[in-house]
């Protein structure tokens, strides 16, 4: 049951990415690039999603534990370190070049366009390389 609900939540997330237009690299690049084509849609997507998540964190803080689980699974990493900053710089470079981050990259695979498969293969390759480091 938990797995079916998770699948539905993934589905909702994916629909959100598509409806918001964030699966279109041009829309993201037109947010990142300041020229006459500037498109501020991305900031609205982020702001609305973050506001809802703030409510969820507030609820969880008051309640203490999630509804159907005993514990909260958070990252083991707590410190701001060079690994975090280096990674964020590299991700920023890749995102600024392509206009695609991992979520939209995954969803765009269904368009069956070679360029998105090439991009996603490279993402997997990058993740694989860092697993060895």
């Amino acid at each position: 049951m938990q797995l079916i609900i998770t699948l539905i939540l993934g589905f909702i997330f994916g629909l959100g990415l598509i409806i918001s237009g964030m699966t279109n690299p041009d829309k993201v690049l037109n947010f990142l690039t300041f020229n006459k084509h500037w498109d501020g849609s991305l900031i609205i997507v982020m702001a609305v999603a973050m506001t809802i998540m703030m409510g969820a964190w507030f609820w969880l803080t008051k309640k203490g534990t999630p509804l159907f689980s005993e514990k909260l699974s958070l990252s083991d990493f707590k410190q701001v370190d060079m690994r975090l900053i280096t990674g964020s710089v590299l991700f920023g470079l890749g995102w600024g070049l392509s206009g695609i981050c991992p979520g939209p990259g995954l969803v765009q695979l269904v368009s069956l366009k070679t360029e998105f498969w090439l991009f996603f293969a490279a993402v997997l390759g990058g993740m694989w390389i860092t697993k060895k480091v």
């Binding site: 990674g87 991700f91 995102w95 070049l97 998105f116 490279a122 990058g126 993740m127 860092t130």
Partner: peptide
């Protein structure tokens, strides 16, 4: 579901590698 990557394949690969390595080191993305 529109959108395309109008770049040379070499640039798509470089961008993808950067996204993969970067999000992996940073343990997170957008």
């Amino acid at each position: 579901l529109v959108g395309e990557l109008n770049f040379p394949p070499s640039m798509i690969i470089i961008a993808g590698l950067l996204v993969g390595i970067g999000t992996s080191l940073a343990n997170g993305c957008t």
